[in-house]
Amino acid sequence: MQDIYLLVAGPLAWAAWAIFFLGSAYKIWSTLAVAKQKDQVLLNYVSFRYALRSIINWSIPFNTTNMRLHPVFTGVAFFFHIAFFVLLIFISAHQIMIEEGFGIGWVTLPDIVADILAFAVLGVCVFFAVRRVIRPEVNYVTDWTDYGLLALVTAPFLTGVLAYHQVGDYMTMVILHMLSAEILLVAIPFTRLSHMLLASLTRGYIGSEFGMVRHVNDW
């Protein structure tokens, strides 16, 4: 068990981060390279100012028309994305590993807050799954990959919560937690989770078209 832990916490973790960073860089680079080769008609219309205008307006909760049409989903979706990164960066258990590994540290969340956030994120994952089933317009465009991706995202939170509360064998749970997080990292550049990388590009492009050519808001 100890050996597996060391493997998952050591070489596999390094590999996962490396694949994530290199894969992400490749994803963005290849998208831009193809755009440069085949979409000049598009690149010529990218305006930094209007791209930023669009990205900012879509980053403010309840700021766009569609966000106000779906207040519950908007609240839940914003919470999910923010909580995802807050937990990743500020949870004390992660912090200890970073400090041990790199000798740097920053403020951490009180455990009780982290715990509540993690449970809330799990609740959101259930919400996303239920929404996929019961909303006809979502269900119609859902296939197994959507549930698969959701499972990939849910797994680190579920195993994290179970490990923290010492449900089941602690060591097994910690290993599963790390492993699932590593799988998620590797999956981001190569699945539709790559919206994390590409959303600012698609948003920025259409924001430029709407701002510079069409002189109209895109939110």
Binding site: T31, A35, N66, D146, R192
Partner: peptide, 22 residues
């Protein structure tokens, strides 16, 4: 004929259905 734009659109779409009511 299609390039990065189509690829990015297909790979970014989260199948969220939020476009429906538009």
């Amino acid at each position: 004929e299609a390039g990065a734009r189509l690829k990015a659109y297909v790979e970014t779409c989260a199948h969220c259905g939020l476009c429906a009511e538009a």
